[in-house]
Design a protein around this nucleic acid. Structure first.
Lengths: 237, 237
DNA sequence: TAATGTGAACAAATTCACAGCC
DNA sequence: GGCTGTGAATTTGTTCACATTA
């Protein structure tokens, strides 16, 4: 089997989410073209993505919504329930815990840890917050996925302890690059990075407009901006 | 100028975050190799990423931490302050509002909107929650970036209104593919998708182990799983 | 006949490797 | 001597185009 691109896996999630809306609308069959439009990609991409895993369609007809949904759930490993531990019961952690949407697919947060004495013992959405010192005992190899929602400074230590406790996949919200051993899956959500990408896009749109107005080539303008940093800025520290 | 890959922009953010830790540690110069290690990439990648925007290093020496930081801030458009509007003051919205980390770089949430009468008028971290009907008036072309933190069903309508109100960049947390006109930048954070990627990784690790144990080829095992969906599942709807 | 599944063509991104410079 | 900057080679991912089949 060819290696499956990460972007394909991401798109499969999107397809599944879209497919699950269809039965209630009375749609029982869908063509790659239609699915692609809804997912913001191309028909060829949809077919290629699926072809990594088998053949699910009927030529001349399209895909059966229900069978394809089942297949995608199977491929994505959503047929079993994954037990999830949350570390960090701050604003963000609690928001995740309460966000029912995320758990519809068989993810269940069944343990919450924090270091803050004021939070320990409290219940959040039915789950008791436990002291972080109990982390290793509390997980006891029964958990696969952990969500790290602690401050940046604490994230690496937490991750190390999670791995030691048998966790094999981490969803990291702390703005640091976690160092993990082979075989532990990692996904990161870094909102600062996303915002900065938007900032880049906006700044460049301005630059592009500027270049347009002045009749310069974009690269010249951009180059001048890139160099606009103080040349002897060392003194500025 | 060659087109800059989106992944390069993302990495520039990461480099900047890393560079900003260094001065306090007394580090004033860094080689691409070292920066790469910290960022989880390769030295060549670091150099290539930077080379899109100019030349910032000294051969034989590396990069000056402070000048490179300045250059990256300039490239990413972080020298000016961006005014940000938040739509949706639910759990997640409030968590974002309170998460000081995100705003260190010149992003300021200065307007918050919601439809829930109980939330309207309340103050969240110093910002008054305004009714969503005031969205168009309230923004009045003074805002560049909006954060969409509303339920999936409301997201597209909110996005349309934001665009009409002059917003040119959207950070979307709702699990839908927003349809936006050309020229409006979009970044999405979809936690369900990230979790499902982890699920896929875990499920495949199991499959790989299984294949190993049974002496089969991975593709055979995977294929059998992909096909494991009910063949005549149409009746199951 | 309409739409899939897929090799082949293409495009994009990453890595290599080395000339050039501090 | 050590490390950058970059074209060229390679790898990875996407799109095309068409034979195939329900």
């Amino acid at each position: 089997m060819k290696k499956v691109p990460g972007s394909t896996v991401t798109r499969l999630s999107v397809y599944l989410r879209l497919l699950e809306e269809l039965p209630s609308q009375g749609v029982s069959t869908i063509a790659s073209e239609e699915l692609a439009t809804r997912a913001g990609t191309t028909a060829a991409q949809v077919r290629k993505d699926l072809s990594f895993f088998g053949t699910f369609g009927k030529r001349g007809l399209g895909y059966g919504v229900v069978p394809l949904s089942s297949a995608l759930r199977s491929i994505l490993g959503l047929e079993r329930k994954w037990r999830v531990a949350l570390v960090g019961a701050g604003q963000l952690g609690r928001a995740l815990l309460g966000h029912a949407e995320f758990w519809r697919q068989g993810f269940a947060i069944e343990a919450v840890f924090d270091t803050d004495p004021r939070k320990i013992g409290q219940r959040c959405y039915g789950v008791r917050v436990r002291p972080a010192v109990e982390l290793e005992d509390g997980l006891g190899r029964g958990y696969d996925i952990a969500i790290v929602a602690v401050p940046a400074a604490a994230a690496q230590e937490v991750a190390d302890r999670l791995v030691a406790a048998g966790i094999r996949a981490i969803l990291n919200f702390a703005p640091v690059k976690l160092q993990l051993p082979e075989g532990v899956a990692l996904k990161s959500v870094n909102m600062a990075v996303e915002l900065e990408s938007l900032s880049f896009a906006l700044a460049n749109a301005r630059v592009a407009a500027l270049a347009d107005a002045e009749g310069k080539r974009l690269d010249e303008v951009l180059a001048s901006i890139a160099v606009a940093a103080p040349p002897q800025a060392k003194a500025a520290e």
